[in-house]
Write a protein that binds this DNA or RNA. Structure first.
Lengths: 252, 252
DNA sequence: TTTTCAATGTGTATTTGTTACACATACATA
DNA sequence: TATGTATGTGTAACAAATACACATTGAAAA
């Protein structure tokens, strides 16, 4: 439980409007990469409730980004997470069967309509310790290819996040937030293949990545594997950040 | 005045929360193209108030897209406008000097904090008849290179919209909404050059555009110019729409 | 009527980037 | 010590982007 932000309880569910902006929620699609699989962190509501995206509300004095950061801190224990606003979900009928949510009373603020801002986050899998809140009985990683049916429009939000992530891959570098600081070229390639959902040519991938000029090869090699030891690489953070801002591909 | 949606008046400004979602607004960056210049449609508040982006609020039963569509209909008279959600502006301090807005009383809902969803719209200049509302004394097109200082963070919203438009140009076709149905290749090129803010090679531009396979050359030529008459083209709408959805550039 | 001018239509060589593919190397295991 | 498999590297074929030149046309000027 975070001592600064009171965790939600039944009372707060009804009086949330005293500290949160009405009608606004934030849903986070938290991506991680582990054992060559792209993962997403999901919560499960108590009493055998449905799975859902980690989400929360917007404090009256916070921006959306601050709110998302707070929510991510609660679920992952991490600060300084890569965050990207990607879409606002505002279909008036998006919250189907909300009345079944047993923690909200009929007239409470939570039963009002919510417009939700979708963020996706990229985190280093090994640094995350999934944390459930007082409404959740479980919080764990799912493979992106087999996420369960979720509440409301959360499957749609997740799919949209994945689509945005894929598209951004063509113009922006990725990996710094998802991989450990030292990694091998095959690991980086697996990350790309996993996000894109298709396999790439090993040699051409290496050429392309190196041509971006954001990688530095270390003198070490990764030992312990059953085969030839691959080189370790790290990102040149300055060049990586510049590529994040300016984009990679020229176009017109 | 729209008969379905009551125009705002002083009373409604204070009781807006009865029909609108609190804390939520929509701001629209409406782009048009005229005489080889990219234009944006701005409003000016009455009594020599500041310039601002056309905006409005979200009816309790509407999605953001429906709200933006309604606002655009009011300002331009047009239906079926190309609309693109691009960013949410939620800095708690974004509405500087809001207390100077003389139409809102101190305790009224409008003086509460607003989070604004930015949309950009592309419209055919010649079809638009700019319409002020009861709060505005002027509504007109500005060249994107010389927009005036606007209220709150509206200059930032505008710049962000322009940036998003530029970036989308690399992956998505543009022109259908901004040009008349028949246009010449030089006109299309001018549109690209204006949005990108740089000049392009005439011959290579033509090759690239034709290679996209979304254009059809007509047998007519555009007569009346002082020089050789250029061919007229039109978009193949089906292929254009497909390219809008799937994107143009392969990437990985 | 003829000439001139400026913008349009079209083609080609060069450079750059992408794709496809093959062989040598090295580490752990057997 | 031999083996298998993943890694490191190079090159030819192909496609795309760029740079650049000359012929054509219509209006306007001479």
């Amino acid at each position: 439980m975070n001592e600064l932000i009171p965790d939600l309880n039944k009372d707060l569910l009804e009086r949330g409007h005293e500290i949160y902006l009405r009608h606004l929620s934030v849903d986070c699609v938290i991506f991680g990469f582990h054992e060559n699989e792209l993962k997403v962190l999901l919560l499960k509501w108590k009493d055998d409730g449905p799975w859902c995206l980690p989400g929360g509300f917007v404090l009256k004095e916070d921006s959306l980004e601050q709110s998302a950061t707070r929510i991510l801190k609660q679920r992952t224990g991490l600060d300084n997470i890569f965050l990207q606003q990607f879409h606002v979900f505002s279909d008036p009928g998006r919250e189907k069967k909300k009345e079944l949510f047993r923690y909200a009373s009929k007239g409470g603020w939570m039963m009002e309509r919510f417009v939700s801002i979708g963020f996706y986050a990229l985190v280093e899998f090994s640094k995350v310790s999934p944390q459930a809140d007082s409404f959740s009985e479980d919080c764990r990683w799912w493979d992106v290819d087999s996420v369960p049916k979720m509440v409301f429009d959360h499957n749609e939000i997740f799919q949209r996040a994945l689509q945005e992530l894929r598209m951004s891959l063509n113009d922006h570098p990725i990996g710094y937030e998802l991989l450990p600081s030292k990694f091998t070229m095959p690991e980086l390639q697996k990350l790309y293949e996993t996000i894109l959902g298709k396999s790439l040519d090993r040699r051409n991938f290496q050429k392309k990545m190196l041509a971006l000029g954001i990688l530095e090869r270390l003198k070490e090699r990764k030992m312990g594997g059953a085969h030839k030891a691959p080189y370790l690489y790290k990102f040149n953070k300055a060049k990586y950040d510049k590529a994040l801002k300016t984009g990679l591909r020229g176009g017109f």
